[in-house]
Amino acid sequence: MQRFLQSDFFYAFTRSPLAMVSLLVVVLMVLSAVFANFIAPTNPFDPASLNLMNGFTPPMEANMFTGESFLLGTDDQGRDLFSAILFGLRVSLFVGIMAVGLAMVLGVLLGLIAGYVGGWLDTLIMRLADIQMTFPSILIAMLIFGVARGLLPPELREEMAITVLILSIGLSEWVNFARTVRGSTMVEKEKEYVAAARLIGLNRWQIMLRHILPNVLGPVLVIATITLALAIIAEATLSFLGVGAPRTEPSLGTLIRIGQDFLFSGEWWILLFPALTLLALALSVNLFGDWLRDTLNPRLR
């Protein structure tokens, strides 16, 4: 810890207001998502607790039938928007982080194999990556999502919606990880410590995981951060298009989709607040990722 506080990295962090603010926003959002059930006044995932009479209450105003008032107003179902946003944030972040985790594990492994083993395996993996790069990742995600939903029995669809969402976003974002890791692996494997490891008879997997992997992880951290913003947006997009998180467990994207239906009838708050939250989250993660990339890349210093 002492070493971390004295590091150049920490010094650069304390000198960058942008980095500090964006990290603060991210941390606040993560905390409020994690502790949503303690912060939120109502449970938006519990349909029984909703009162339809509360529908379309504007922010900070008393409802004309029940007299109840909500900080950010309610949606058409009478759901408290503030609570819905907190829980939606939780869904969005959970899906985003899990999807990035999946993409990272998959991408790093494939990149390591492609870079270290080379040959036809390298060609196969990288051509696959090239093909996937030619499609927008949201299209890939929708394709995977559609296929997965088609394979699932109908009674499981609602239940598995989040898992399928994670899978489809994760599988559409591995390419960047794989490309970067492959490049660094090809550099590292020429170094003599790898030859030394081969010499003592370690097998390929031991060399890849114990010797090369730690040396190529630096850029992966940066890509993971930037991909997190992409994944959160991808989740919101999928949910906005109606193929993501279900209406009963709305993510930020689902809330925006619901809000969009009522924008032109004057209920602006249903769209605005979830959208602002998404914007703030994606922007902060992105800014922090950019700062990480600039700070950790010796060539840009």
């Binding site: 170094k191 003599e192 410590y193 030394a196 490891a197 010797h211």
Partner: peptide, 12 residues
């Protein structure tokens, strides 16, 4: 090996 800068794994 020739180059002691690369013949030891820098992260271990």
């Amino acid at each position: 090996f020739q180059d002691p800068l690369t013949s030891l794994n820098p992260l271990r």
